[in-house]
Design a protein around this nucleic acid. Structure first.
Lengths: 345, 345
DNA sequence: CTGTTAGCGCATTCAC
DNA sequence: GTGAATGCGCTAACAG
């Protein structure tokens, strides 16, 4: 592999001159610039990124850690879309992504710490959003530039999040407008901020409609179809009546559809259902599922953008600044009792 | 940030001694080892990975590139599972993953080349598996250690793949055993090796059953539910009759389910359906979908394992060696005409 | 405009 | 057993 010295020798200049040509310095004559470029081409020279990183103390690399739990919480396509968004923006800024998927939060914390301490990355993006998030604590303690995808319930951080409260409020309001009055809410685990937010939006809509928030219609469970189904069964058996379900994840909505089928309830006539995430494959349920569309790609892209800007100008890394991305309610048949029109997907 | 010099000064030894302690050299007295360790703890020293990479010409980093096309081809959960598997193995070997998701093959080729030439990575894993794959050509030309997830139809490479031919043969055979005789096959784009392999398995099973392979029952289209649905409609309108569908992707199977619904055909009585990938969310279709389960996690884990072993011992990087992972047919109701029992998922 | 010098943080000779 | 010297490939002063 050719080094800067080889190029310098071939072009008959010093290594620093070559370095300047690479950097695009303007105080180099066109003649030597041209000579150097020709030499570079001849030996197929490409600067060694590692050597560069060492001397500049900048790696042009961003770390992204994730622990399995969060991966499951958000449904799968969410995760890959976020990555796509991050990668696209990183590409534009000529940066790379160092990825690590851990089994649990402890592992993630460890890995995160390692990437930072070993100076492998210039900054971090994390996607965990637990109520008590140790990864965030570490990041703050290490004074690492970082952006959170989601929201911190503890220390103020720079974050980008979809507007879960508003999305949930709108979804609930939509159900109310369709004439449903007894809306059950299936919440994900309460130690995830996202669960709290969606719950809050649900309550907000009820309060605004001057309807009581009834604890018996709210159930918390793990993200899975089975859990969603079981939760509704339990409510039913407990004698709680409901005419609609706000599912804080499409998996729950799937469970709700099965519940309706199981009980012989017609959707949307006897049971309205709204999901969260608008998982692409779910457009094809019977009936098609109304769901809140999350801008996953944009979430990743925006987080990366914020971080890279912050890396260039540390002033911009204002902790406490929370960027909210709008979420859109994709109305389909599962919640359309009034016979209104279905939006095109 | 503390450097090796700081530690040396504090411990009253030379930097090289500290370096030896880190490396675990045995020709260092226990006494100084202890002193050095204490100093390291005191200043919270962690070796700088970049400096280390420079001097050892080893980054302990593996690149993984992917272009959007392949991402879509394989369904989404596949992609994240592969990443999980790769990450888990990398973790065990104390290596990291540099990830890049490109828009198209040209971009991917460029990025791949960049990672290698800039010496950011020790090796590459790629997941593209086009019939004519330029990324593979680049990798070979650059003499980079690499492993392919999938299969190369051109130059021999070290690869790990699920046994698509066999899986497809078994799926087809299963349909035959259920008494279906006119099996339609929905193929993905023919420029993907995976499509060719699945088509081959389908034909193999027919030939083994001494049944004719009829071109009119084979259709090639893009991966989407809509395309699958449309393909079947076209066949139907063309007067081609079929009593079962082998869908080379679960999305196609979804389209087939809709087709059955649309036509008023009962599944599995009047139309048997088998999908590919066993997408988790798809366990909940009506009726539950029979599908070929791909070991995505294992694919990623194995690819990483092969690469890292190859990095340690280049002899092991034998191009032409193709590791095949078994795929399992998850039989559910959509293909059970005989009233046989459904496997537990 | 360009060359010389020094150093990023570490590992690895070669001495003793 | 340990230290001093050297260099990985590059950039950034400082000269001139």
């Amino acid at each position: 592999m050719a080094t800067i010295k080889d190029v310098a020798k071939l072009a008959g200049v010093s290594p620093s001159t070559v370095s300047r040509v690479i950097a695009g310095s303007d105080r180099i004559s066109e003649r030597t610039k041209e000579r150097v470029r020709r030499a570079m081409n001849e030996v197929n020279y490409v600067p060694n990124a590692i050597a560069r990183s060492l001397v500049r103390s900048r790696t042009r690399t961003v770390g992204f850690t994730l622990s399995r739990r969060a991966d499951q919480a958000f449904s799968n396509p969410f995760f890959s879309e976020v990555l796509r968004g991050m990668s696209a923006t990183a590409q534009r800024w000529d940066h790379d992504i160092l990825l690590s998927i851990s089994l649990d939060e402890q592992d993630e914390k460890k890995k995160c710490l390692q990437l930072i301490r070993e100076r492998r990355v210039d900054g971090m993006i994390i996607s965990t959003s637990r109520v008590q998030d140790e990864v965030i604590d570490v990041l703050i303690r290490e004074k690492t530039p970082f952006v959170v995808i989601g929201r911190s319930a503890g220390a103020p951080v720079l974050s980008v999040n979809n507007d879960n409260v508003e999305a949930s409020r709108r979804a609930t309001k939509h159900l109310l407008e369709q004439g449903y009055r007894k809306i059950a809410f299936i919440s994900g685990p309460r130690d995830l901020v996202v669960s709290l937010d969606r719950g809050q939006g649900y309550e907000k809509a009820l309060v605004e409609a001057e309807l009581p928030v009834e604890a018996k219609r709210i159930v918390e469970t793990d993200f899975s179809e089975e859990a969603g189904f079981a939760a509704l069964c339990r409510m039913w058996e407990a004698g709680v009546d409901f005419d609609a379900v706000l599912a804080s994840d499409d998996l729950f909505a799937l469970g709700a559809l099965r519940f309706a089928d199981h009980m012989g309830l017609r959707v949307p006539e006897e049971l309205g259902i709204v999901g969260f995430n608008d998982t692409p494959m779910m457009t094809h349920t019977h009936p098609p599922l109304t769901s809140v569309r999350i801008l996953s790609y944009e979430l990743g892209a925006e987080a990366m953008e914020l971080l890279l800007q912050g890396l260039e100008n540390r002033e911009k890394l204002r902790p406490g600044k929370e960027i909210l991305l709008p979420a859109e309610l994709k109305v389909r048949q599962s919640s359309l009792r009034q016979g209104g029109k279905t939006e095109k997907q």
